[in-house]
Design a protein around this nucleic acid. Structure first.
Lengths: 350, 350
DNA sequence: TTGTAGGCGTTATCAC
DNA sequence: GTGATAACGCCTACAA
């Protein structure tokens, strides 16, 4: 069933039917009703593909994500999905498997499919694969207006691209966590951060450094180590640190997965949390409150990140927002549970 | 850059360029090379939308899921995604929010978008919304051949639809779990199952019943209750059961979320696992092994479910498989950890 | 208020 | 081997 058949059934032209459907021109009430009835009775629905071809837009947005199995991403996706659905947009999922080359491939594919916009949680923050995948013409023109495919970066900010981004106050998050540990009397505070080439890796480390410096507590290099945001690296680094002659009395995990790794390692080593080591994780997750002890974490509004990013993207796509590039920064919040305790050394000393 | 421009640049017709690209007809090596060079140098990529319109297929498959936040679904999605990507298919995500009406809406939308096939984890097992969303012509024709949109059901089997499905041995899973508890001497075994209108709800209960009957242990009605697969219902039902004058000494949770709820409630009530109650969950999840105690669970191959379903679907889409409707049943496996212990009553008695 | 006709970028059927 | 040309289903000047 297509436009033409409906038109014939109604005894009008395809133009008229199209006008009835889209309200895109004057139609007499009488014919409108006749056409509507036939559409209804035939269960006719316009073909999206044909419409896309004609209109040059697909009402489809690409969501590029490094790894759906990481519980953080579905939360963000959920928020974005809801907003997109409201506006009649579908989401095409692009999984990059944390791999830079796959990422470029995925972006290219999304472009060929004519996604109207992209929501991206990137792996490659250098932007080089992205640039190659997008082609040169996606830069800002001299007039300052963006051209090409609208994109909103989530969780990562990519230098050299004039695109919007929705991130969180990574620095503030770890500063808060570190301050809290300092208040509890800890000074031997370790930070297992993510890759410094990534925004969340670098900023979270910076927040920790800042808090330490502001408190006048020297940072010991053996207490700072770089992981790769995966469970395994948290597991391994935590082990190395606890085997130090003078191990830390508190550890901050750079993301959810690494924190889980740290937690596992401490359990395996029989190191009691929080008696011997206090632990704070970045990112809350379903079972954090049910571990023993319940984990104190830096929480952030994951679904909101998705929602806000989607809203921003749609406003760009639909031309409602022509303003300059935006960077939305959402706040984090320390959720205090039971994995931190007053430092014993400190209590003895004071 | 489109076909026509390439053709002009190469001094040939669009038909020839198309033949070069698709190998769909004879082309002299010389022109082929010339055309290929120009395509390369221009960075030309065929427009998928136009191709879809012409070909009547989109190389797109819809993945319908009740709730992406439930860790089970991303795992399945991951498996399916990988296979689809290999075959050049993209996945459009349809989130139903566990809601029957949304489900119908999502299916309709996927149909209008001309998804080539559907991978569905359904909420409505009655099939009525599905039937209405699909239209009548999706039934089996008299010749026994399916017609219409290829679909593979995951995790749920829908009566009255001649579609393939990939499910697991739900019954065997709970039978195994129950047998294990029986071996440990438990007889007061509770089962908190999911809605009986769903395959996993009904079958898992059945497996429990079977094991109890085979062991000659009577099932007490106060030990069997229906939840809704969500955390909250596990939490509430577990509370009610433990307040019984004669509470169970072991509980089986009907899915991951409800098990988490049960776990939380027992913790909140100060009921020690496994000393006072043994607990087995259906579905493994990331932190199950890191809870205290580590949770014994019935595990199932989630990514495999997605992979196999996607392979089945693609084989149907591409017409490689014309055989009768298939039902793939994957085995479960009991992962014994620390949340179960020999029944104390039993030890006293024997 | 309504209809005609062209074109979005492909592929495929014919001729040549 | 190659080239016109007609669809695919829709929207939208432009004309009437």
């Amino acid at each position: 069933m297509n436009l033409k058949e409906i038109a014939e059934l109604a005894g009008v032209s395809t133009a008229t039917v199209s006008r009835v459907i889209n309200g895109s021109g004057p139609v007499s009430p009488a014919t409108a009703e006749r056409v509507l009835n036939i559409i209804e009775q035939q269960g006719y629905v316009p073909d999206k593909i044909a419409k896309s071809l004609r209109m040059g837009q697909t009402r489809t947005i690409g969501f590029v994500v490094p790894d759906i199995s990481n519980p953080f991403f579905p939360e963000v996706l959920n928020g974005a999905q809801a907003v997109c659905a409201e506006h009649g947009y579908s989401i095409i999922l692009g999984n990059t498997n944390e791999d830079v080359d796959t990422e470029a491939k995925v972006v290219r594919s999304l472009r060929v499919q004519h996604a109207d916009g992209l929501l991206m949680i990137l792996v490659d923050e250098s932007g080089s694969t992205l640039r190659s995948a997008l082609g040169a013409r996606t830069q800002v023109s001299s007039s300052g207006r963006r051209s090409g495919l609208p994109i909103v970066f989530i969780d990562r900010y990519i230098r050299g691209f004039e695109y919007d981004s929705v991130i969180i106050d990574n620095e503030g998050g770890t500063t808060q966590a570190t301050d809290y540990l300092l208040e509890l009397g800890h000074t031997k505070i370790a930070m297992i951060h993510g890759p410094l080439t990534t925004t969340p890796g670098e900023r979270r480390l910076r927040g920790y450094m800042k808090a330490m410096r502001d408190a006048g507590v020297p940072v010991r290099s053996e207490y700072v180590a770089e992981g790769d945001f995966r469970t395994r690296s948290g597991y391994e680094i935590a082990g190395r640190m606890m085997e130090l002659a003078d191990p830390p009395t508190a550890i901050i995990g750079g993301n959810n997965l690494m924190t889980i790794g740290i937690f596992q390692r401490l359990a395996d080593m029989g190191v009691c949390i929080p008696d011997r080591v206090s632990l704070i994780g970045f990112d809350d997750f379903t079972l954090a409150a049910n571990l023993t002890p319940a984990l104190t974490v830096v929480d952030r509004p994951m679904a909101d990140m998705g929602r806000i990013a989607a809203e921003l993207l749609l406003s760009r796509i639909e031309g409602r927002d022509e303003s300059a590039t935006r960077q939305v920064i959402l706040p984090t919040r320390l959720k205090i549970r039971d994995s931190c305790r007053r430092c014993i050394d400190c209590a003895v000393r004071s």
